[in-house]
Design a protein around this nucleic acid. Structure first.
Lengths: 143, 143
DNA sequence: CATTTATAATTCAATAGTGTACTATTAACT
DNA sequence: AGTTAATAGTACACTATTGAATTATAAATG
């Protein structure tokens, strides 16, 4: 009995159901792979966004990149800051603004997290070839 | 600037990121379409599982069908029962057990919900043809 | 310049979901 | 039968996320 049979399988609603449950499953797996490092996938995505951004990043921009609301980022950054992973610095050009930057520890954790994620990802996509992954990406973007 | 560009786009991790965010997005849309009926997609899936099951359903079985933990179902059924959508009845064959069954109101709500969902689903899959939907289903099942 | 409008971030209350511990009951095994 | 192990459901504390209200600052406009 695989998970597929536990979902409504008929029609488009069943397909969305499958998408949603598979997304949750994937997130749970990734969270599991990051737990040893004290991270979650959401936290890691925040670090990843920070490391990839050319310029220092304000909280609103970060919320956009993480597809969540500002108040969520406020609390996420609270935690990351308490853990010494990021640092808040005032935006020199806008006294309302706060910029977030990685600490050295944060940079190390991002790297460790990426390694863990690459492992977990290989397992999740064990039965995918390059074509299947490209197809999945193309289809998801259509949504 | 579409959502795709807000996700890490590289490699397998990016693809999982895309899957997770698209799943969340889809759920939010479906929840929105059901809000007028006082439902969420999770609630509707519970009703759907109940309506489709041949025999009366215990909470543990329901938890399996909804891919969540038992305590979650306890609380979900608490709410549904308070709203008059389902009813708890003792399992005649096992004094530990509780079975859940739909009320008449619940049956009506399931139908109303399905109509709302079919609408929302059509919009979400606006740019999908039959082939694309079949491909997506086939790929998600591999995960 | 004064006033209105928009924006950055935070606080707080509410909701959904998880995991652990617990109670009651059933099944399994001497 | 008596003890042990497994199972059904619940209670409760904790986390993640959201949305509304609030404060401070910036931008736009009469």
């Amino acid at each position: 009995m695989n998970d597929f049979e536990q979902c409504p399988t008929e029609g488009a609603i069943g397909l969305l159901s499958l998408l949603i449950t598979r997304g949750r499953l994937a997130e749970a797996r990734l969270d599991g792979s990051l737990a040893a490092a004290g991270l979650t996938f959401v936290k890691w995505r925040a670090l990843d966004a920070l490391i990839k951004s050319e310029t220092a990043t304000g909280l609103t921009v970060l919320a956009d990149k993480l597809n969540c609301v500002k108040s969520n980022v406020t609390q996420l950054v609270d935690k990351l800051e308490a853990e010494g992973i990021v640092r808040r610095v005032p935006d020199p050009g806008d006294r309302r603004g706060t910029l977030v930057e990685l600490t050295g520890a944060g940079r190390g954790l991002h790297k460790a997290g990426r390694d863990a994620l690459e492992n977990a990802t290989r397992q999740l996509f064990a039965s995918f070839d390059e074509d299947a992954m490209a197809s999945l990406r193309r289809l998801l973007i259509l949504l």
